[in-house]
């Protein structure tokens, strides 16, 4: 697992909080930096794809293990 510039723990949070916290966390990054988000909301899988598509921040990694979803986003340049 590559290191990211920032980590966000969104476990236990329900829609729309993981996305809102992600947006906030991305604000602290500069273009090209990466953010890893861990969430437990099953809706997050589709939501993160949709978020990436609409905001232009690239979803570089997306995985699931033990009921936890991990996403890595690269902030838009």
């Amino acid at each position: 697992m590559a290191t990211c510039d920032k980590e966000l723990d969104a476990r236990g949070l329900n829609c729309p909080l993981p996305i809102l916290r992600t947006k906030k966390a991305l604000n602290d990054l500069t273009g090209g930096q990466t953010l890893r988000v861990v969430a437990t909301d099953p809706g997050a899988i589709k939501d993160f794809q949709a978020f990436a598509k609409q905001t232009g921040n690239e979803l570089v990694e997306s995985g699931e293990a033990n009921g936890e979803f991990t996403f890595v986003l690269r902030k838009k340049a």
């Binding site: 729309p16 809102l20 992600t22 978020f51 609409q54 905001t55």
Partner: peptide
């Protein structure tokens, strides 16, 4: 509203 704002 909050989600739309997060999407720009």
């Amino acid at each position: 509203a909050s989600t739309a704002a997060a999407l720009g």
